[in-house]
């Protein structure tokens, strides 16, 4: 059974009199434990799809299912809970809070998960330890390299033990060596945590070397489900 499924998901943006179709009847399934890459040119709707699957955005039509449950009827609060506990997201530009150090960034996600005090700090350093940043706990994003920042983002995404990691061009700002290292880390964590990964990338080489399956997108539609 598939953990994630999108069924005829469309997203339209109204721009004055014209409308832009960012997603056009996208249907796909991702099984539990799979490492799936979505590949396509810029503007093909990859980020839009990922945001909808991650509960940050709503489709204009169609439905997303998580564990066979449709996200559509979720209240705002349930949607927040879904983002908090069920999925973790990482982004091309890391999206860390610049005024917080590594431990605080991870700790913020843990705080939303209800952990406090030393328990929270311990869990944060444990997570950072797992991504190889045990000696960077008190560094702020500005004091970390791109690869290190993305690893902090991974630690934060996994803070509340989600089943799915959604990654939007996670290596977009990294050189190829760092990119390989990062994906190596992701694959290791995925296998140890039984994590399902849906990763957007425009890099075909990376996708083929790490993903179990590659979904091809073009102009908002899936052209090849891999």
């Amino acid at each position: 059974m598939s953990l994630l499924e999108s069924r005829e998901v469309s997203k339209l943006y109204q721009m004055g009199s014209t409308s832009v179709t960012a997603l056009d009847n996208v249907s796909l399934k991702v099984n539990e434990g799979e490492f799936v890459a979505i590949q396509g040119t810029s503007g093909s709707g990859k980020s839009t799809l990922l945001n909808i699957v991650g509960g940050l955005d709503h489709p204009t039509s169609g439905e997303v299912f998580f564990n066979a449950r449709p996200l559509g009827p979720f209240s705002k609060r349930e949607m927040a809970r879904y983002r908090r506990y069920s999925v973790g997201m990482i982004f091309q530009n890391f999206n860390l809070i610049p005024t917080m150090n590594a431990q605080e960034n991870v700790g913020l996600a843990l705080a939303f998960g209800g952990l406090r005090g030393t328990q929270r700090n311990n869990k944060a350093s444990e997570l950072l330890n797992r991504v190889g940043l045990a000696d960077r706990l008190t560094h702020r994003p500005g004091e970390l390299s791109g690869g290190e920042q993305q690893r902090v983002a991974i630690a934060r995404a996994l803070a509340n033990n989600p089943k799915v990691l959604l990654a939007d061009e996670p290596t977009g700002n990294l050189d190829s060596t760092r990119a390989h290292e990062l994906l190596e880390l992701l694959r290791r964590m995925a296998s140890s945590d039984a994590l399902t990964i849906l990763m957007v990338t425009h890099d075909r080489e990376l996708a083929t070397s790490f993903a179990d399956r590659i979904i091809q997108m073009k102009d908002g539609a899936v052209v090849d489900e891999g």
Binding site: R83, M89, A109
Partner: peptide
Amino acid sequence: IMKAIGAE
């Protein structure tokens, strides 16, 4: 960011 990581 806070919303993305689950803030209500």
